[in-house]
Simulated scan of single mutants.
Amino acid sequence: MSLKFCSLASGSSGNCQYIAANSTRVLLDAGLSGKYIKNAIDSISEDITKLSGILVTHEHTDHIQGVGVLMRRYNLDVYANQSTWDVMLPKIGKVDPDRVKVIQNGVPFAIGDLEVKSIGVSHDAADPVAYRFSDGVSRLAVATDLGTMTEEILQELLQVDFLMLESNHDIEMLKMGAYPYYLKRRILSEVGHLSNDNAGEIATLAVQGGRVQNILLGHLSKENNFPELAFETVSGVLRENHIHVGTDVCLDLSYRDRVGRVYSIGR
């Protein structure tokens, strides 16, 4: 058994991650058009009609744009906590009540061969979460759209083999950039987004204190970051803490506007 993971897109223009274990296939968020998501799944030689469901982190448009369309077109169950459903329902069109699955934060549940656990995070949404997935042996987590890292979240991330971690912005680029002051303040706040430096610090803790072997940087800003800058900043923080990329941990990037690499995660 092994987990399969692919970032179909990650950024403020839309987020969607593909996760599979054996015969179970799910999407984490669907923040792009149904057409884009279908084409993205086709491009990794998978079949969208075999999806078991969609899990939603929070109700922002870049995470739910395609949820209603995919839910109706492919008869998919959609999983989210009650607060997220309350805000999301008016935004996604008509839904089949039998496909609405309400989850409890922190309470593990199963979707076929996948064990799933949602983890409450700090972001400016109704009740945003990160997710941890397991096939019973290996584990992965996706933690983006979080303004701060708490000890509770960190303890969950220390238990995974593969971590997709937000590396949204370079602080100086954001401060000097064209965003209005209120938006800069929001992004830098505890309900905003993690910077490259934050990501490096968290990556260090995840490798030193846990079982993390692969880190994928996600949700990079188009205006306030560069992929090369995010990679070098996080790599530099790891090096400062005597962790060497390529030897001690594999570090990679996801993309805002295209499908990334397919990973097989097995111990």
Rank of each mutant, 00 (worst) to 15 (best):
T150L: 10
Q159Y: 00
T148Q: 04
E152I: 13
M164P: 04
M164G: 07
F162E: 00
H169S: 08
D161P: 02
V160F: 07
G147E: 04
L158Q: 13
E151K: 14
V160G: 08
E152A: 15
N168I: 00
N168K: 07
V142N: 14
I153L: 15
E166I: 10
V142F: 06
G147P: 02
D170P: 07
T148E: 03
S167G: 14
D170W: 02
L146D: 04
N168D: 11
V142I: 14
T144C: 13
E151L: 13
L157K: 09
L154I: 08
T148A: 03
I171N: 02
N168M: 09
D170L: 08
M149E: 02
Q155F: 08
T148V: 00
M164D: 04
D170G: 09
L146H: 11
M149H: 03
I153T: 15
D161E: 10
L163I: 07
T144Y: 08
L163M: 07
L157Q: 07
I153K: 12
N168W: 00
V160P: 09
S167C: 13
L163C: 06
T148H: 04
D170Q: 10
L154F: 06
H169N: 12
D170S: 14
D170I: 05
S167H: 05
V160Y: 07
E156I: 11
D170R: 08
